[in-house]
């Protein structure tokens, strides 16, 4: 055993690497469609709840523009889904990122009506502390529902903070940073929408072939 030639070891290793690679490629090949379908399903379920029922008669899930703006958190392009009713713009779902969380980015989906009233906000992904910051998820608490029906056009700047910092939002116990990060991201995205909505709804939609999850 100990007198094996190095060439043989090399060959053996290469053969093993090749076999393993082929194996993974095979599994990837047959699981990929299911993975994409699962992600799309998750995203669709989220998108369905972000605008009022019957407020859109266009296929807004495919009516997407990519926006690069600091108001949406990063300089990476973020997706904005545009809803229309009878040919008139009726609202949008904005993907926004907050980099101000406790750990890593918090990606939000913000459903906003054309008049600036928020319909709902949901967290798409985050890595906040389990048991503390993760109560921004709907499964963990109903904190995120505080944004529902918020008429942003009528709010002043001081509204957008937790009560401890002089604002109007209840904070999540033990997660002030997470609460503020979400609040600020929603504030920036909603005011960006109110400033840019007409321009936004006039843009040409892009064709997407990948999900963002």
């Amino acid at each position: 055993m100990s007198t094996v030639k190095p060439q043989r070891s090399g060959l053996l290793l290469s053969a093993a690497v090749l076999t393993c690679t082929l194996l993974i490629i095979t599994v990837h090949w047959f699981s990929e469609p299911t993975i994409i379908a699962a992600q799309q399903k998750q995203l669709n379920e989220l998108l369905d709840n972000l605008l009022p029922a019957k407020s859109a008669d266009n296929n807004f899930k495919d009516n997407v523009v990519l926006i690069e703006s600091e108001a949406l958190g990063t300089l990476d392009a973020q997706r904005v889904y545009r809803a229309e009713l009878n040919g008139e713009p009726s609202g949008a779902i904005i993907t926004a990122v907050s980099t101000m969380g406790y750990s890593g980015d918090i990606t939000l989906l913000i459903g906003i009506e054309y008049n600036g009233t928020i319909h709902a906000v949901r967290v798409l992904s985050h890595s906040e502390t389990p048991g503390l910051g993760d109560v921004i998820e709907t499964q963990k608490s109903d904190w995120i529902f505080k944004f529902d029906q918020l008429p942003t056009a009528a709010l002043t700047n001081t509204y957008w903070a937790v009560k401890k910092n002089g604002g109007e939002f209840d904070r999540i116990t033990g997660a002030t940073i997470t609460s503020n990060a979400v609040i600020k991201a929603v504030e920036r995205a909603s005011s960006w929408y109110r400033l840019n909505r007409d321009n936004l709804h006039g843009k040409k939609s892009v064709k997407l072939n990948q999900t963002i999850l």
């Binding site: 993974i24 990837h28 699981s31 299911t34 993975i35 699962a38 992600q39 998750q42």
Partner: peptide, 9 residues
């Protein structure tokens, strides 16, 4: 991991 992503996302 691949199987879990597909069937238990």
């Amino acid at each position: 991991e691949l199987l879990m992503r597909a069937w238990f996302p």
